[in-house]
Design a protein around this nucleic acid. Structure first.
Lengths: 209, 209
DNA sequence: GCAAACTGGTACGGCTTCGTACCAGAAAGG
DNA sequence: CCTTTCTGGTACGAAGCCGTACCAGTTTGC
């Protein structure tokens, strides 16, 4: 019996190689899944539903993913990379600017990406140990990066790794909670007002120094 | 047709009135659900599964709840009441004590209640708009209470409602993130060490003042 | 006792999703 | 062309859960 595996007699189709077509389908599935998970919600999502939105046969789902959870993980990687870019975009040489830039970037991203933000703020949570692990890794990574930017702005500070983890978690956790609260609020104050409140808090903190 | 509704010809059974029996069954369902949601997870939970653990016929589920989500809400109210007691147990007249007591109470509760904490930290998230609303309400409430205790310990501070909300969210969010990170790292390091790190951070903050 | 209410166990139809298979038509290659 | 691969649409069995109904045995009120 000769090798009859799928990749054996691969041919171009519509001018694209097999690998290119597979990758394109994978991207379409991920894009469709972001839409479905971010609107209907992951809990009510089905393989068939995602494929319908993607305009692909169910067969092609299993070509790229084994389970819906695998697709969720791929979706999350895309979403979190985008968020990471947003919250770490700002530069700053003093603590207030760093923290303010982080929160501002977060709220901006949530506002500009309502679907993706629902995926990140709600849908990926509590799905499975594996997804939780992913989530924790990225949260820690962003927290570490924030610490890296924050610590040098405060001379004479040499936190232990454990303290850095504490500060990173606290910053990320605070940002998430503020974002979640903002999203779930019935009447959302404009982002600018929220940031003005933040400035007030940070100002009071500085005044105490 | 005479009234044949269930409550019409109610009789005591095993010495208990109908209302008492119904309430007892409800409690058993809630207790079973905490166990199921906190171990198997809400996502994989079924009505039949919860009833089996509770040792009750499925019929009695629908006697007290219309959907599994209703039961989750009831479960959450029980769990959050317990957590609330834990995180607000400590007294304190200075900011460091208040914050430390909050974090300490949170971690203690997580450590002593692994099942309930999984429900609160993971399972209730991203279920539905209704559950999210519940979650947000309790988080805000705890944040407000923390603010109420924190603000008087810092003389000359009169935060606006918006600023109070900011601080409350930040505290609660930081606490949750720290707890989640701790749980996902299998509670390493031990709670005492983690609190020592917190003391270090708070100490550095004070030193800056 | 005896009828009526209650309990716990089992059973069943209906529904939804999964994962795969089949089929007809388009595109590629010799 | 004519065969082979690829695509998209439809179909189908298997499985799990829902919500309800039925049934046998117990407890209660009269």
């Amino acid at each position: 019996m000769s090798n009859t595996s799928k990749s054996e007699r691969a041919r171009p189709y519509a001018g694209e190689s097999r690998a290119t077509r597979e990758a394109a389908r994978r991207e379409r599935l991920i894009a469709a899944a972001i839409s479905v998970f971010g609107t209907t919600g992951y809990r009510d999502a089905t393989v068939g539903g995602v494929c319908e939105v993607a305009g692909l046969n169910k067969r092609y789902f299993y070509e790229s993913f084994a389970t819906l959870e695998d697709l969720l993980c791929a979706v999350y990687e895309v979403v979190v990379a985008d968020l990471r870019r947003a919250v770490l975009a700002a530069e700053g040489n003093d603590p207030v600017t760093v923290v303010r830039g982080f929160i501002d970037g977060f709220l901006r991203w949530v506002q500009d990406n309502p679907v993706e933000s629902r995926v990140h703020l709600f849908e990926v949570l509590g799905v499975s140990a594996r997804v939780d692990e992913l989530y924790r890794g990225h949260a820690r990574s962003v927290g570490d990066e924030l610490c890296d930017r924050l610590v040098p702005t405060i001379p004479g500070l040499e936190p232990t790794p454990g303290q850095r983890r504490f500060v990173g978690d606290a910053l990320v956790g605070a940002g998430i909670q503020i974002a979640v609260d903002w999203v779930l609020s019935e009447q959302q104050p404009p982002r600018e007002e929220l940031l003005a409140e933040l400035d007030g808090v940070l100002g009071s903190l500085l005044q105490l120094l």
